[in-house]
């Protein structure tokens, strides 16, 4: 045993565990490799049997077909607009509210905060039917706004930002106060920049949630122009042997995931820090 051995990494982890994890990683990737394989095969060949995946020839025809005629681009844009819009909305509302709950005094502050905390416990399912009716009244279905709005009410962001604003040392804004800065300026110029790590965490969570949202877009975005990627891909899974074929569907799945996967590969480090940031508290 070398002296180095007391480092936490060496005590919590070892080679054998690593190789088990690596094996799990291979299992994890197998379905993806399978889909990539299918996407590179001609559909007619696959109809005779999918063992064809393991032998030549391979082709890019499925991808060419997507570029030519698929609606994936439109769905992708809708998903982007909704996810980005929702992320900014949540960050803005949660930061404003979190700041006030954490660092300002106003009447009913505590009561209001407790009410908001209660909101944490309300799952989407408990309100979705009523929301669907409400959005009918205001003709908000099949609009981007209609897709963005519901999740802005999530109390999680406010809770998280309140925690982070609380963690900032009191001296910082008190020093700013001596310079007679307005409350809003203190928030905007002094404190908000300090919460950037928290913003990143909340932002990524919100974005992923919006990107993966299923039920609300399923009943709200009912026109094909307004489909998000999630709903669009679902709609094309219909009766697949009869229509597009496994190769085309595989290509669609790969193609639709490509943008987020690329973003993920480039920003992986940031995303990982941000996600882990959520656990520090």
């Amino acid at each position: 045993m070398k002296a180095l051995n007391y480092s936490p990494e060496h005590l919590t982890s070892n080679r054998r565990l690593f190789w088990i994890a690596a094996a799990l990683g291979v299992i994890m990737m197998a379905p993806v490799a399978w889909i990539i394989g299918l996407s590179l095969k001609d559909n007619a060949e696959l109809l005779k049997g999918t063992e064809a995946v393991f032998s030549f020839p391979y082709t890019l025809v499925n991808y060419a077909n997507i570029l030519e005629s698929s609606s994936v681009f439109g769905w992708f844009m809708n998903s982007m607009i909704v996810a980005v819009g929702q992320t900014f909305g949540v960050l803005l509302l949660s930061s404003l509210a979190g700041y006030a709950f954490a660092r300002l005094e106003f009447p009913f502050r505590k009561t209001l905060f407790i009410i908001v905390l209660f909101g944490l416990a309300v799952p989407e399912q408990a309100v979705i039917i009523a929301r669907h009716q409400m959005f009918n009244w205001f003709d908000l279905h099949n609009t981007h706004i209609g897709l963005i709005l519901p999740n802005l009410s999530s109390a999680f962001g406010v809770f998280l930002m309140t925690q982070f604003f609380r963690a900032i040392p009191k001296e910082i804004d008190e020093a700013a106060m001596l310079d007679n800065t307005s409350t809003f300026r203190i928030f905007w110029k002094v404190l908000l920049p300090l919460t950037l790590p928290a913003q990143a965490t909340l932002g990524i969570f919100t974005f992923l949630q919006a990107w993966n949202d299923y039920w609300w877009p399923l009943i709200s975005a009912t026109k094909s122009d307004m489909y998000t990627l999630t709903i669009g891909i679902a709609s094309s899974q219909t009766n697949f042997a009869q229509s597009e074929g496994l190769g085309f569907l595989g290509a669609q799945a790969i193609f639709a995931s490509l943008p987020v996967v690329i973003v993920y590969i480039f920003f992986q480090r940031h995303i990982v820090t941000a996600v882990s940031g959520g656990a520090v508290k």
């Binding site: 669907h132 009716q133 959005f135 009918n136 003709d139 279905h141 099949n142 399923l218 009943i219 709200s220 009912t222 026109k223 094909s224 679902a234 709609s235 094309s236 899974q237 219909t238 009766n239």
Partner: peptide, 20 residues
């Protein structure tokens, strides 16, 4: 043309309810 998952009546119901 919009292609719906067979038979697509749940989607039609949501559309009818939202007048779209």
């Amino acid at each position: 043309v919009t292609t719906v998952e067979w038979p697509g009546y749940d989607q039609l119901n949501a559309q009818l309810a939202s007048r779209s």
